[in-house]
Each structure stands twice: as structure tokens, then as C-alpha cells.
Computed example of a mutant assay.
Amino acid sequence: MRLTVYLAGEIHSPWREEIKEKAKSLQLPIDFVGPMEDHDRSDAIGEEILGEQPNPIFRDAAASSFNNLRTQVLMQKADLVIALFGEKYKQWNTAMDASAAVSLGKPLILIRPEELHHPLKELSRKSNATVETVNQAIKALAYIFD
């Protein structure tokens, strides 16, 4: 059995590569998908597809449509979602993706540092598992295959 795992969360740190490398070292049969990690392309995709937009608001709206399309397709095909809430970056997209996973009935592993326990308490209770580290998330994934 192979699983497809959607990795939701900020795109500025290498946490996805860490999960992928650890899963590979454990020989877990997992395919990973997630949001567009090229931030410049993510911001420009609307104009890439539709052409130049009249102002930054329209540019963002156009890009958001295509990014939401991509996320919805990939998340619906995923067997499980891992959402990482880091300490450094704003986490709006992570919260949106984690909530979408809950709404879609996708199993959800939430990674969040202890300091974010209180602000994420409701979302944490909706997830299937809440952990504090990438290593703990990998152990949870590995347990599925035991």
C-alpha cells in the first residue's frame, strides 16, 4: 500500500525536505504533494495564465484562484495531510489548509510547537494527532505501516 501525503504549511523553511528524507530512509511507501514551493511562481501564476493584471489586488486574486485550484485537487487526492505550524512565519495558509483537511474528512497530523498549544487548541482537537516535531510526525506515519 502506498499513501499520498499532502504537506501543508509555510514554504520558507526546509521542513518538507526533512520529512521526505526521513520517510525515504525508513523506506515508507509515501508520495508527497503540497503547495507550490516556488514563492515567486506562486505569486505570479495568475498573470502567467491570464496575462498582466491591472493592479496588485487583481494580481493576488488571480494567483489565489490557481493556487486554490492546485491545493484542492492535490488535497482531495491525498490520503493524509500533515500541517506544520512553525514559529517564525505567519500561518494563515497553514490554518486554511488544515481546516480544509478537516472539512474534507482527511486524516490530519498537526505539527505545532508547545508555545502554540493555546492558539491552536480547537484545531488540535479536530486533528487526528497533534505532535510537536517532524520526528514525531514521521513516527506517526511509520506506525500506519506497522
Score class of each variant (00 low, 15 high):
residue 61 A to F: 06
residue 28 L to A: 11
residue 139 K to W: 03
residue 57 I to W: 01
residue 70 R to M: 03
residue 134 V to T: 10
residue 82 I to M: 08
residue 132 E to Q: 09
residue 115 E to K: 13
residue 82 I to W: 09
residue 42 S to A: 15
residue 47 E to W: 03
residue 111 I to H: 08
residue 99 S to R: 12
residue 95 A to L: 15
residue 79 D to V: 05
residue 51 G to C: 04
residue 43 D to R: 15
residue 38 D to L: 09
residue 62 A to T: 12
residue 86 G to P: 02
residue 47 E to C: 03
residue 116 L to A: 15
residue 32 F to C: 09
residue 128 N to L: 01
residue 100 A to H: 12
residue 53 Q to E: 14
residue 71 T to H: 02
residue 67 N to V: 15
residue 124 S to Q: 11
residue 26 L to E: 11
residue 9 G to L: 04
residue 40 D to S: 13
residue 133 T to M: 02
residue 110 L to Q: 03
residue 36 M to F: 02
residue 31 D to S: 14
residue 19 I to C: 04
residue 81 V to F: 06
residue 17 E to K: 14
residue 95 A to Y: 13
residue 91 Q to R: 12
residue 14 P to I: 00
residue 134 V to M: 07
residue 77 K to E: 06
residue 111 I to Y: 03
residue 139 K to N: 14
residue 145 F to W: 04
residue 49 I to Y: 05
residue 34 G to N: 10
residue 45 I to A: 08
residue 99 S to A: 13
residue 85 F to H: 08
residue 24 K to P: 05
residue 47 E to Y: 00
residue 144 I to W: 07
residue 77 K to V: 00
residue 110 L to V: 01
residue 139 K to M: 09
residue 117 H to R: 14
residue 72 Q to P: 00
residue 3 L to M: 15
residue 144 I to P: 01
residue 136 Q to S: 13
residue 11 I to K: 07
residue 135 N to D: 15
residue 86 G to W: 02
residue 146 D to C: 00
residue 2 R to L: 07
residue 128 N to W: 03
residue 70 R to H: 06
residue 117 H to P: 02
residue 79 D to T: 04
residue 73 V to D: 01
residue 122 E to Q: 10
residue 89 Y to H: 14
residue 136 Q to V: 08
residue 62 A to H: 15
residue 8 A to D: 06
residue 21 E to F: 08
residue 71 T to W: 02
residue 144 I to N: 01
residue 62 A to V: 14
residue 45 I to D: 05
residue 4 T to C: 01
residue 123 L to C: 05
residue 12 H to C: 03
residue 107 P to T: 13
residue 49 I to V: 14
residue 96 M to D: 05
residue 91 Q to F: 08
residue 50 L to E: 12
residue 31 D to N: 15
residue 41 R to E: 14
residue 105 G to L: 05
residue 115 E to G: 01
residue 64 S to R: 14
residue 107 P to K: 02
residue 75 M to I: 05
residue 33 V to M: 12
residue 30 I to H: 07
residue 13 S to A: 09
residue 69 L to Q: 12
residue 86 G to A: 03
residue 138 I to S: 10
residue 29 P to K: 04
residue 76 Q to N: 11
residue 126 K to C: 09
residue 59 R to C: 00
residue 31 D to P: 00
residue 140 A to R: 15
residue 60 D to R: 15
residue 7 L to V: 04
residue 112 R to A: 15
residue 74 L to R: 04
residue 90 K to I: 13
residue 57 I to K: 12
residue 56 P to H: 14
residue 107 P to C: 12
residue 28 L to D: 06
residue 21 E to C: 07
residue 61 A to V: 06
residue 106 K to A: 06
residue 65 S to D: 04
residue 104 L to K: 02
residue 11 I to L: 12
residue 54 P to A: 10
residue 102 V to D: 03
residue 52 E to Y: 03
residue 78 A to H: 02
residue 18 E to M: 13
residue 108 L to W: 02
residue 70 R to S: 05
residue 99 S to Y: 08
residue 81 V to N: 05
residue 98 A to T: 00
residue 142 A to S: 13
residue 134 V to F: 07
residue 71 T to N: 07
residue 86 G to L: 04
residue 121 K to L: 11
residue 10 E to L: 08
residue 128 N to K: 12
residue 116 L to K: 14
residue 123 L to H: 11
residue 91 Q to I: 03
residue 124 S to M: 10
